[in-house]
Amino acid sequence: MRSTQYIWLGLTVLIGILWVFIIQNWIFLNLFSALLGQNLNVFLPQISSPSFTILWISCTIALLFWIFTTLNGKPRNAAEVKSMQPRWWISTILLVLLGWLSQLFFTVLIWQIQSASPVEGSGVNYYPLPAGGWLLVMVFVVLNVLLLFWLPTLLASPRTYRFVVPGAVRLLGGR
């Protein structure tokens, strides 16, 4: 792995942490509060934060697994390198699905399992997220996966796997 790739890996991981734990919350609070229901003091600490933390942990594990696999791979030819592309896509799709499932879990399922209501006096045992809010968090899950998995794998895939991540040839393929 090149030294610049280590730097990119460190930087993207750092940016990911800042994004998940600070910037994203700030955006929800200041730009999209109208879409996220009346109780942001409940949504942010009890729904958004744990669900996106789980997504962050999943993306980090997937990223480490990807780096470990590609760092130790000894592909014989371009075709073997490219055989990692379907694995990358499967990982990405699973992460997005996991992210959406996580949103569903913390917004609805966990309250129903506990038979509790996140918003006192609302009379429903789930967080009443408007349709626009659901769309927003789903888009943000995709954005998170791009930032937490695609970007670091794009910039830090080692050895002959350097261009295997979608978009790498177009973005990094010049000489």
Partner: peptide, 25 residues
């Protein structure tokens, strides 16, 4: 190896080949 890689490259678009063979660029 390399000769076989160049043969395989004839059947692919260059972009597709490069994604598995960054050295070729």
């Amino acid at each position: 190896n390399f000769s076989l890689e160049l043969d395989a490259a004839q059947k692919l678009s260059m972009g597709s080949f490069l994604s598995g063979a960054p050295w070729a660029r």
